[in-house]
């Protein structure tokens, strides 16, 4: 006769097997928790370090801004100076246009012809109206011939002749209207 009868042998085997499996699961879950905890700590520390870095950058920005504000009068005068130079560029360009045209026309027609009147019109003063005065009709005839010359038309293609008049002293005047080309200021070589 057997000494004892084990009615739960199968169950015991099942429980032992289950507990062994549970131990494995416990091990893996502990490792997972550990890893996640480490990640959390690393993320927290890096956030803290980055925040410190950001604070120092912001503090440096503040001190640099204060330093710039202290130099405000210099910045103001220099900025206005630069803007004024831009405006002067336009004004010089427009005037150089006129000066070059007047110099050209004064020399082109030779002695005995002078520019006696001039005025500007147009949005950017690009239309120059002037009168050429000549001592006599022979000089004026020379002017008429020269107005047709290719050299003049190449330099100022848009030129219109106006009225011809003669005053009591015998001086002949011819009105001309010229559209001045756009000019770009260039450094003299």
């Amino acid at each position: 006769m057997p000494k004892n009868i084990n009615f739960v042998r199968d169950r015991q085997r099942w429980v032992e097997k289950a507990q062994a499996q549970d131990q494995k699961i416990l091990l893996f879950s502990s490792i997972a928790l550990g890893i996640i905890a480490v990640i959390g700590i690393v993320a927290g520390v890096s956030h803290w370090l980055l925040s410190r870095n950001l604070d120092s950058i912001l503090s440096e920005q503040k001190s640099t801004k204060s330093a710039i504000l202290a130099e405000q009068p210099i910045e103001e005068s220099y900025t206005i100076f630069a803007h004024k130079l831009r405006v002067l560029t336009d004004l010089f360009g427009n005037r150089k246009n006129k000066q070059e045209a007047l110099t050209f026309f004064s020399k082109f027609f030779g002695p005995g012809v002078i520019i006696s009147q001039l005025s500007y019109s147009g949005e950017n003063n690009e239309i120059l109206t002037f009168s050429l005065s000549a001592q006599d009709i022979f000089t004026m005839e020379r002017v008429f011939k020269q107005l047709k010359s290719p050299e003049l038309l190449a330099a100022y293609p848009d030129i219109t002749r106006g009225g011809l008049s003669r005053n009591d002293s015998g001086v002949y005047s011819l009105k001309l209207t010229v559209v001045l080309p756009d000019i770009v200021l260039e450094k003299e070589s």
Partner: peptide, 14 residues
């Protein structure tokens, strides 16, 4: 199944 219960707790905490 104590180990399993603890493991479940650890997973939840994770």
């Amino acid at each position: 199944r104590r180990s399993l219960a603890i493991a479940i707790g650890l997973v939840l905490a994770s």
